[in-house]
Structure formats: C-alpha cells, structure tokens
Design a binder for these strands. Structure first.
Length: 800
DNA sequence: GCCGTAGGACTACCA
DNA sequence: ACTGGTAGTCCTACGGCG
C-alpha cells in the first residue's frame, strides 16, 4: 500500500477483466491513472416486493446477456419530498438504458448520467484539487483528504498552416506546410519542409510533410505535453493532420498510448479527445465567453480574442491575407513572414490560453466537472452539473431530462420578462443611473425561489413568500437552487473583499480573481436555467416569479424616485436613469440609501454613475422613444453607447464611424454644426466614389444552412454568389458584403467583398448614413435635406 | 406594371 | 442548445390605381 499526493484531473471508465473500473487521470510529477472499481446503477420507483422479479429479468442485446446484479431499497428525496426507491445495479454502464427500458412500467431516475460523472458525484470528488490517496499498484484504495489548490500542467499550443491554392485547403490533396508549437516552459518553434531564405533560429527544416508531422508528434511526446491547446483544432487542425498522416501512410501518434485522437460529439459541438492528455480547443471557450457577453467581438477569430482578452495586437496577423498564404509559401522572400506568422499563431494561442485557463480551472472546480468537459460546455450544462452534484450530496434524486414533447410544450408559451420604460427622446444634461446588483440572483435567494419550495404545504401562509404572480415559496426550508446560488453569491462577495487587500500582481490574486469571475458567470445563469426548456429543474412558476418580482422592484423604485421629485427618464430590467435637474449629487445618493433601507437583505440598489450629458432618440417609425438605445457622457469624458448602429456589426464602417463622430460632436462638443458638417462630408465622400470598399462592408451571420432559408436576404444572396464563384461558405459563416451598383433589389446588388467591384453610393447615403444620424440630429431640428445638400441649402431649386 | 404598405423572416442588440 | 424585450432591415404578398 502506497500513499501519494496528486491532483485529480479527469475521469473515464474502462473494463478490466470484464469488470467496470473508473480511471482517474491524476497529475503528480507526471500524469498517471488510478483505477477504481465501481458499480453502475439507477433508481426505480417500484415497490420492494418487485426486487426479485427485477433480479430475475432475462435480457439480451445483440446476443449478449444483460444482467441486473443487485437491487436494494433506499431512502431518497424526490422533488423535495422523502421517497423509498429501488437502487437497481447493472453489470455495465452501457447496459443501464436497456434495463431501464425493460422496466419502463415504473418511473426511473438517473439512468442517463455518464458513468464517470456518476462516480465523481457519488464520491464527492473535485477536479483540480490536490488529493492524498492510498493505492496498491494502479488500484485506488481510498482518497484521504484534499487541498483546494489548482494544478499547473505542462502546456503546449500548436497551429498548422496548409497549402490553399483553391481558397480553402483540401485535406486529401493540399499538404501541411508547417506546424508551429509553443510550450509553457518557453520552448517554441516552427517545423517545416522548405528552407527559409536565410536561416531562422526557430525554424526546423525536415525532409518533407511526412517527417514534419512525425517530428511534431515526437515533440508532443518528448515534452510530455499534458494540456494541448489549439484554436478550432477540433474541427480543423487535428482532423487535417490526421488526413495528412493517412495520406503519408504514417500513424498520428499524439496520445500517450500512441494513438491519435477521438472525436466526441457533445450536443452540437465536436470535440477531439487525445488519450492521456487534455486537448482544449480555445475556440469553444471564446465562443462561450461570447454567448455570456464576457467577450464582444464581431468575429470569434484568434486575432480578435487575443486583442480583447490579452489586450495586445497580434504581431503578424494583419500582414498575412488568408487567401495569399499559399503564394507566400511558394515565394522565397515572403516565406520568411509566413514562418513568423505561424510561430506567432501558437505563441499567441498559448498566451490567450494563459488568460483563459485560470477561469476554466475554477469553473471546473466549482462545478466539479473535468476541464475538458468545461471547455466545451454551455452555461446550462455548467449550472446543471453543480445542481446535480449538490443534489446527490443531499440525498436527493436528480430530476430527469425532459422529453422532446415536454421541451416543445415548455417552449410553446413564453414567460413574461423584464420591464422597459419608454424614454422621451431628447438631449439631456446631468443624469444619474442606479442599478440593482445581481437582481435575479438576489430575488431567487431572498424569496427562496425553487421548484421544490413552490406551493409548499409545510409553512403557514404568512411565512411564505408570495410572488406577484401568486406563486408561494416556502419560508422555512431553503430550496436547492437558492442554497447553491446563495453559496455562490456569498463566496464571491468574500473573494471580492479579499481581492481588495491583495496585490494585483500576486499569484493568489490571479486565482482568486478567476474564481470570482467563474462564480459571477454561474450566478447570472441560474434564472436562465430555471426557465430553460431542456432544464432538469425547469419551473415555469419559478421563472415567472423571478421576472415578476424583478418588475415589481424596478417599478417600485421608479415610483419612489418620482415621489422624491426626480424625473425618471428610462429604465430597463434592473436600472433606472434619473434626471438630476438642479439637485446636488448627494440628494441622489440619499435617495439610493432610502430605497435600500426598505429592500430585502440581499438586494441592493447601487450607483452606476453620474453623467453630464445623454442622448435618447426616437424609433425610426413614429415619434415615440426608442428603448435600448442611448448614449451617455460620464464625468471623465467617456462615452457609454448602447444599441446604436455603431455598436452593431451589421452596419457598414462608414455609417458607424459617422454616427460615432456625430454623437461625439453632440455629447462632447455640444456642437450641432460640427455634427452636420461631419455628415455632409461623408455624404460627399460617398458620392465621389472614393470610399474604400472595406469601409462599406456589412457583416451578417448566416445562422443556418444556406439552403434552408425561406427568404433571400442580401447576405444570403451574396453568399450564394460567392459559392458559385468557388469561395467556400460554411453553414454558419459570417458574410461580409457590399451593396454594388449592379442589380435592382438590395439582394441582387449584394456581393461578398472579394467579388465587389464598385458600390452604390445612393444606397449607402439613403440606407446607412442618413437613417443612422437623422434619428439623433432630428432632436436638434436638423432635417434630411439639411444633410443631403452641399454647402448652403437652396431648397428645391437647387435640386432641379 | 407601379406604388405603398402590412406582415413575416431574420439578425443583433440590451439586460 | 441560459431567458425575454426590442429595433430595424429586407423580402413577399397584396390591394389600389389606371
């Protein structure tokens, strides 16, 4: 018996001599595996008297016998209430569904939990924690204790460059020209099979493509890489390498077992797993950050993610055009830049990983999910993971996933959401904005909103929380969701206090900061999960109550502000925009304190900021104010702009820049004349035909297969024409198109940038510039004609 | 056949 | 494949006109 210390990284399962063993991937000095015998099972809602019949089940699949190995009665809670269930053990994890199906006359639970996840939950194990354990050979005897300390792994980022004379490279024909890598120990380089013009220290020239691939695998093995990063590597680099290895008749030995990788489909995403290592495709993580709003970029490219998250500009990206890469390879002079480009790609990928990994590690620890799964999870899966873990630890049965029918039923009727106040359009001075900190999480905790506390019978009516919808939530026993969420919110508050006392450069700071980031993401996801149609803990009543209370608190705050003599200009979900008028800032702060004194303990109205000026506009049609669209100037001269065309990617750069400059002229300089001059200048520039096509590109995403659209939009039309011209368009591609002169409808005129030869100045003036600036300038009494004509306006006479 | 418009399809934003 | 609320574009169908 040996005692050891190692970090738990992940788990899967494996059969040894016909028995099911969970394999824990551990990190000590190196990565190694510990085997632990464990029996698969699920719960059946059947009387104990059925045990014998269940044990005697005679089942087979594909000629192989399926056995129920054991049945035992257990006490658990179901939907928050105590219940007696049968725990039905199966011979193998993959046989659980068949056994459950054979017993479909009874209700069943937890029959579709991945076995390794089952094990981790039952044992209460947390990835990335340091465990002290006892083992005999490769078999785990017991876990003794653990410390809350994140593991550091040997990391490497890689990237391949492929020959692409046809635009997109073809894996069966076009070779890999170079493979670059960058390791956390500082080693980096480019492997290739053509010489640089003059020797370059980081370039290693091999005999050919075959040797280049072999050398890369060798380095992965020699460096004993534990974490391998790529950017879209699951869908591009790894499958491409595999195809090229095959074309060269060599194995792709990336795994620690000498194997290549396995593709696993997780929902809609595809993930490559490398045996004995952790492969993390940063593209998925960047996409995740995009969906939760933590990252705002027009396209989820490595270059954009690097700029936004690392805060630096990529050194070589801008110098290389994707479509020109093959030419650079064939040109000895340009090849030098291509080597640098490739080298930087992996180094920047590694740097990006450095900014992302700490948060991923913390999400892994908090949700008790191995990091590989975390890196390809949706918010719903993360929230669910943690609820499942806590549920098991409390002896509660995990609710089943809804059937397709239930999902449809749940989705059929929407839940009423937040309140948005209609603003009066205009230009205002001296505003103050307050918002509720974590409105929905604090409502859920304060009012104990949970599927299990709903309409409880345990407490007296006066002890219950009664939501504005009439739903009642138990006032005595805390529900599962409030329990988990309360923990998250409190832990995060504690961390934020500690962070204030720490030095920003210290290593503890980085981990703690990442932990609070992870907690924030989770806290903000619970409301969405309660109202998510595929959720295991879905509750329409809960979802409706959260938003109803939200509307209640915000409208109450508006009423209080008005009673205190403030004009409330605008409000959206959890924020109020008030006009200070001649009142001093302190009066607004007193109002805030007053509101807070009457709110439940965990709810708080906070000062967002004071603003010197603000612009609210009308909707395009009609005269009523537009919601979710405003621009503010704070006391430090910074602009806060929401909803305007200039923050949208589906507007051209000329229109966005013009609108931005107009807002600047009005907010900062307070000059209408300057704003008008800016517009006129742009209109003239467009008319003269000298605006570069790049400034006229409109980016729009095709969210489905181009063949599945019912109507032809400009982006679809442009995409079709591009395809016909041999440009590859993916099913979810971002289409950057220009409105050209040829054609009658806008769709006909739309051409992908690569195919556009000219532009329709009239379209850009009438449909991009004027609509985007007019709604702002109309507030200052500027008309359309004031903007269209050069110099002094002479009325209609000048036109004819 | 041309014009104007209502309604639908669709995207991207705010919170 | 976490929620709902919102603005806005272009397309399509349709009715009126003549």
């Amino acid at each position: 018996m040996k005692v050891g210390k190692a970090f738990l990284i992940s788990a899967d399962y494996h059969l040894v001599n016909g028995k099911t063993y969970v394999r824990l991937l551990m990190k000590g000095k190196k990565l190694f595996r510990l085997y632990d015998y464990y029996e698969p099972y699920f719960y059946l809602d059947a009387p104990e008297s059925e045990s014998k019949n269940i044990l005697a089940l005679d089942l087979a699949e594909g000629g192989k016998k399926i056995k129920v190995t054991k049945v035992e009665p257990v006490e658990r809670t179901v939907s928050g209430k105590p219940a007696r269930l049968l725990k039905v053990y199966a011979d193998y994890p993959f046989n659980v569904p068949a056994i459950r199906k054979a017993l479909s006359g009874y209700g069943a639970y937890e029959y579709n939990i991945p076995f390794a996840k089952r094990y981790l939950m039952d044992k209460g194990l947390e990835p990335f924690s340091l465990y002290t354990y006892e083992r005999e050979g490769k078999f785990l005897k017991r876990m003794i204790s653990h410390e809350d300390k994140p593991a550091r792994l040997k990391e490497m980022a890689f990237d391949i460059e492929t020959y692409n004379p046809q635009g997109m490279p073809r894996k069966d024909i076009d070779p890999v020209m170079m493979i670059s890598y960058a390791c956390s120990n500082g080693k980096s380089g480019v492997l290739t099979w053509r010489n640089p013009k003059a020797p370059m220290p980081f370039v290693k020239v091999l005999a050919g493509e075959k040797e280049t691939i072999q050398e890369f695998c060798k380095i992965v093995r020699e460096e004993d890489v534990e974490m391998l990063y790529g950017y879209n590597s699951s869908q591009f680099d790894l499958p491409y390498l595999e195809a090229r290895a095959k074309a060269n008749n060599i194995p792709l030995k990336l795994g620690r077992d000498g194997g290549s990788f396995k593709i696993s489909e997780r929902g809609l995403t595809v993930e490559a797993k490398i045996s004995g290592r952790i492969h993390m495709d940063l593209f998925h993580v960047v996409k995740f950050l995009g969906t939760i709003g933590a990252l705002k970029v027009s396209k989820l490219t490595l270059e954009n993610a690097y700029r936004e998250l690392v805060g630096k500009e990529s050194e070589t990206k801008s110098k290389v055009q994707k479509l020109e890469i093959y030419k650079m390879w064939d040109d000895e002079d340009m090849r030098t830049l291509l080597f640098q480009y490739s080298h930087n790609d992996s180094r920047e990928t590694l740097e990006l990983a450095g900014h992302i990994l700490p948060m991923e590690v913390q999400l892994s620890k908090i949700t008790k999910t191995p990091i590989f799964d975390v890196s390809s999870s949706t918010t719903g899966q993360l929230v669910e993971s943690l609820l499942m873990f806590v549920s098991v630890s409390k002896g509660a049965v995990i609710p089943n996933k809804p059937s397709d029918f239930e999902v449809k039923d749940r989705s059929a009727h929407m839940i009423q959401g937040a309140f948005v106040k209609l603003p009066t359009p205009g230009i205002y001075e001296n505003l103050v904005v307050f918002d509720f900190r974590g409105l929905y999480p604090s409502i859920i905790c304060s009012h104990n909103i949970d599927p299990y506390t709903l309409n409880c019978t345990d407490c007296k009516p006066e002890e219950c929380h009664v939501s504005p919808t009439g739903a009642r939530f138990c006032g005595k026993k805390q529900g599962l969701v409030p329990f988990v969420l309360d923990n998250i919110v409190r832990t995060r508050a504690g961390l934020k206090d500690q962070l204030k006392k720490l030095d920003k450069g210290s290593p503890e700071y980085a981990d703690m900061f990442a932990r609070q980031q992870a907690l924030k993401i989770l806290a903000n996801s619970y409301y969405g999960y309660l109202a998510y149609a595929r959720s295991r803990w879905y509750s329409r009543d809960c979802g409706e109550s959260v938003t109803a209370w939200g509307r209640h608190y915000i409208t109450q705050t508006i009423a209080k502000a008005e009673a205190a003599g403030f004009e409330v200009l605008y409000a959206d979900t959890d924020s109020v925009f008030m006009l200070l008028g001649s009142k001093p800032n302190e009066e607004a702060m007193r109002f805030m304190q007053n509101v807070n004194s009457s709110l439940p303990e965990r709810m708080e109205l906070e000062l967002e900021a004071f603003y010197t000026r603000g612009v609210f506009v009308t909707k395009k049609a009609g005269t009523s104010g537009a919601k979710k669209k405003y621009a503010l100037l704070d006391e430090k001269g910074r602009m806060k702009i929401r909803g305007f065309e200039l923050v949208r990617r589906d507007w051209s750069k000329v229109a966005k820049e013009t609108q931005s400059n107009v807002l600047k002229a009005i907010l900062k300089d307070g000059s209408k004349d300057k704003a008008v001059a800016i517009v006129k200048e742009t209109v003239e520039r467009l008319r003269s035909g000298t605006v570069p096509l790049e400034e006229l590109v409109v980016n729009t995403r095709l969210n489905k297969d181009p063949d599945k659209y019912l109507v032809t939009s400009p982006e679809l039309s442009a995409a079709r024409k591009a395809r016909a011209a041999g440009i590859r368009i993916d099913s979810d591609a971002m289409i950057g198109y220009v409105i050209t002169k040829s054609g009658s409808t806008v769709s006909e005129k739309a051409q992908v940038l690569e195919l556009a030869k000219d532009y329709d100045a009239n379209y850009y003036i009438e449909h991009q510039i004027l609509p985007s600036v007019l709604k702002i300038l109309r507030e200052l009494g500027v008309s359309e004609d004031d903007l269209k004509f050069k110099g002094k306006q002479t009325g209609l006479a000048g036109f004819f």
